[in-house]
Design a protein around this nucleic acid. Sequence first.
DNA 1: ATTAGCACTCTACCTTTGAGAGTGCTAAAA
DNA 2: TTTTAGCACTCTCAAAGGTAGAGTGCTAAT
Lengths: 341, 341
Amino acid sequence: MIDERSKQVLFAVIQCYINEPGPVGSRVVTKKYSFGLSPATIRNIMSDLEEMGFLRQPHTSAGRVPTDIGYRFYVDKLVCERQQNNKENLFDIYKKLEMQKKDINSFLDAASRMLSSLSHYIGITTSPNAGMTTLNKIDLIKYRENHVAVLLFTDEGIMKNRIVSVDSDISQKDLNRIAEYINGKFVGHTLDDIRKSIVREITKEKVVCDKLISEALTLIRDIFSTSHSDIFISGLSEVLELPDFCDINRIKELLKTIEDKHIIVKLLDEISDSEGPRVFIGSENPLEEMKKFSFVVSTYKEGSRPIGAIGIIGPTRMNYIKAISIVDTTAYYITNMLSGR
Amino acid sequence: MIDERSKQVLFAVIQCYINEPGPVGSRVVTKKYSFGLSPATIRNIMSDLEEMGFLRQPHTSAGRVPTDIGYRFYVDKLVCERQQNNKENLFDIYKKLEMQKKDINSFLDAASRMLSSLSHYIGITTSPNAGMTTLNKIDLIKYRENHVAVLLFTDEGIMKNRIVSVDSDISQKDLNRIAEYINGKFVGHTLDDIRKSIVREITKEKVVCDKLISEALTLIRDIFSTSHSDIFISGLSEVLELPDFCDINRIKELLKTIEDKHIIVKLLDEISDSEGPRVFIGSENPLEEMKKFSFVVSTYKEGSRPIGAIGIIGPTRMNYIKAISIVDTTAYYITNMLSGR
DNA sequence: ATTAGCACTCTACCTTTGAGAGTGCTAAAA
DNA sequence: TTTTAGCACTCTCAAAGGTAGAGTGCTAAT
């Protein structure tokens, strides 16, 4: 389909373009890479590559620029060959993040900053998807008259807390009883499973237990269902330094997408059941607003189950090698750190 | 110092400029406002105003543009005269925010979005300054072996929670005892005060009580001291639509400032002991990075003590009337809603 | 199959030009 | 004394032309 030499030329063009933006011409390729061919030959090859859809010309008689398909080809090759990560920066990441261990959210915030400062693109991390985490303990605490604090502990630390007002004033003793009942039933299950069983239990109306408990269950179900995860985004100013973002309209687009965090959360949620780092290049992006950018994502896990996502957003002219490596190793260390608590 | 007629002209120029950017000339002023004077006279007045520092010319033979001093004069006048807020939009704000009452942080997040969507500038809210809030209750819960969850309830809802690892395994009973002791001593005081007394107590070494308690106190002091408040910023994409931000460098500046949230937190903290809405115009801003923007801030309170700040960032060419009114009423309603819990 | 040579194309940047808007000044009018 | 009309002058902005540079595609020679 595509011979080895053409492939080499394609990769050369892509690497040139990643190093500095602007169409890359045949002469430049011959100078930077010693193919032992003249510009004219390279030109012919590039012309072929354009026909195949890997390159394109911004305008007649300019150099070539990679298409999304070209990048895809390049990245696929990359991922295949990548056995050895560059282990050097691993340790740095590890050490710096270690400091932030205190609380899971500030930890993930720090991780997103880390992603962006390492890559010079936009770094994104999400807090664990509540539904995927396992319940460690529920506590009900009387907060003041008619107000109860519901605390959901998961294996990663406190995940959710909420103060709810209840109609009848319940004593702390009763609350303890309810909590005990719920704990006995649900500890060790994922929140998603718990929600499902609660729904089942309520609808089946086989509430042998007392009214308070059924009320509490309804309450907890509600808490579970409004579980939008937190998301940490950083590096916007970082990305503005790139020549790719000299156009004000692109900035606007990007900002609008990112500011509506729910969009990103949804996107990441969809991804978060897949393995290893994934790359979405330009038009491959499921989100309309992101079709001009590239997105490298991976997940961190609790045990073997992915519970949260991290990633990098940058221009399609992204240093994919670096980005993939950064995302991958960061995900790896987040997983480690969560389990090491 | 400055006669009435000149003042009128100054305000006319400012209003023109706020309505649409670009230097405003003498002809425009005579057309939009009926002073009964010819352009030539207006020109003379404007020339005087320039000498006094209220206006300036971007270049010879262009119209005039207000200086920061000019805006200041205008805003001062405004604040003096402002007795009647436009009560219409109050109700809207109130109703929409009411929905978000559930949890204080998502509530403040919503409030910041509200600020930005109403003003079309950048909306900022901070969560209550932990130090200023009063302690409602402390709870210590055994989370797993050697791990204790410390919960700080304040009158606004749960403010802080942290899981800490302790050397010796403590029983829930002991934890309850410690919590009880601390509660008895500190409930009703502000966290700042509590921190101070803890420090005193520890340093004085008059720890008649047992070792666990002194250890717990040290712990809690640490938790208090790392109290950076959350901050919610929104409306970045909003602001890019303004003609004032057509220059990419200004965007960069702004983003850099805003992305480093600690800067803003610090700024707001300094302000948060003053009354009513305050306006910082361009160079009046204490922060170097903000000297090209204007900042309208106010505080929300617990009782009569300000505990958090909200504000709007926009261009110096800001609609100050609207901005002040929005900030003021939003602050008012946040105060109300917090106390109405 | 590859390459050298050449005409052609397109962009980016610079300069020029003219229109438009607005000022400052002066002298006349109120 | 204050206001106004008239006019020359200045500056910006946008469009128009012109040139250099980079790169291509094609053809004919190697």
